[in-house]
Simulated scan of single mutants.
Amino acid sequence: MKGCLFIHGFTGAPYEVEPLANYFKETTNWVIKVPTLPGHGVTLALKGHTYNDWVSHAEKELLELMKQVDEVYVIGFSMGGIIASYLAAKYNVSKLILLSAAAYYVNPKQLMLDFKEMVKDFLKGSIYENELFNRYKKKIVQTPLRSTLEFQKLVKVIKPYLEKITLPVLIVQGECDGIVPVKSAHYLYNTIPSEMKELCLLPGSKHLVCHGEDYEHLKKLVEDFLHDHNNDVKHVNPSQQINIH
C-alpha cells in the first residue's frame, strides 16, 4: 500500500493542493493525507504558533501515515515544500515533489506586474473581481509580523537539510510566480544532491500552480513521476530543464 502526504503553504490551507490530492484519491487506492498546519486554514489564527509547531505537525502526520502504508510520497507546496524537504531528508520517503517551494520569497518583478494589474482593475472599478487582490488582502490583514519571521526562521533552519536529500525529486515552478521567484527552483535543483531529480517550469502559472492554467500539465507531470518505476535512474540536468508549453 502506498501513501501520499500533501503539505500546504504559509498562511494557506489544504485548498492550495486539493486539486492534486483529490485527483489521486479518485484514481488510486493510496492513503492520501492533507493536514492543516497549526494556525492555518480558511480563517487564520497564527498568533502564538512557531515554525516548530508547523514542522512538528507535519512530522506527526508523516509518522502516522508511515504506520499505515509500505511506501510514502511527500508533496509540498510553497512553505510546505521546505517542510517536505526536511521530512524527506530525515525519514524513509520514496519520492519528493516540490511545488513552488519557497527557498526564496517574493519575486519583485512579477509582483510589480501583478500590482499594475490590480491598479488597472481598481481604476476600472473592478478591483473586487481581481483574484489575487481578493486572495492576498485577507492574508495580509490576518498575518502577524511575528509569524512571517517564524516562516523566515523555518527556511533558514531547514536549508541545510536540502544537501541530505538523495531520493527522486520533482521540482515544479510557475514562471509567473510573484511570491516565490524562479531562482528558488534553480537553487533547490542545484543544492539537492540527488542524482534522480527533475526541474519543470510552467510558463503560464503564478504561485498557486494547482489552480493555474498549466494545471493539466502539472497533473500529468506529477502522475508520471509518481507512477514511473524507472525514475530512480532519471536525471535531468540544468541544460535539459522541461518547460511546459
Rank of each mutant, 00 (worst) to 15 (best):
L37Y: 14
L37D: 12
G39M: 07
G39W: 09
H40P: 04
H40G: 07
G41N: 09
T43N: 12
L46I: 05
L46F: 12
G48H: 11
H49F: 10
H49K: 09
T50L: 10
D53P: 05
D53F: 01
S56N: 12
H57P: 01
H57I: 02
E59A: 03
E59W: 00
E59P: 06
K60E: 09
L65D: 00
L65H: 11
K67A: 11
V69E: 03
V69N: 02
D70R: 08
V72S: 02
V72C: 04
V72Q: 02
I75T: 06
G76D: 00
G76P: 04
I82N: 01
I82R: 00
S85I: 00
Y86C: 02
Y86S: 05
L87P: 11
A88N: 00
A88G: 03
A88C: 01
A89Q: 08
K90W: 01
Y91W: 11
Y91E: 10
N92T: 13
V93N: 03
V93S: 02
V93Q: 03
V93H: 06
I97E: 06
I97W: 10
L99D: 05
A101M: 01
A102C: 00
Y105R: 00
Y105N: 08
V106Y: 12
V106N: 09
N107C: 07
P108F: 06
P108A: 03
K109V: 04
Q110D: 14
L111E: 14
M112D: 15
M112I: 12
L113T: 13
D114K: 07
D114P: 10
D114Y: 14
F115V: 10
K116V: 15
M118P: 10
M118S: 06
V119C: 11
K120E: 11
K120D: 14
D121F: 01
D121Q: 05
D121L: 00
F122D: 15
L123S: 12
L123G: 11
K124W: 15
Y128C: 11
E129C: 06
E129K: 09
E131P: 08
L132P: 07
F133S: 05
F133N: 02
F133D: 03
F133V: 11
N134I: 13
Y136N: 13
K138Y: 15
K139L: 05
K139Y: 13
I140R: 14
Q142Y: 15
T143M: 07
T143E: 07
T143G: 07
P144N: 01
L145Y: 13
R146F: 13
R146N: 13
R146T: 15
T148Q: 15
T148V: 15
E150H: 08
E150C: 06
Q152W: 04
K153I: 10
L154P: 04
V155K: 02
V155C: 00
P160E: 05
Y161A: 03
Y161N: 09
E163Q: 06
K164R: 11
K164Y: 03
T166H: 11
L167C: 08
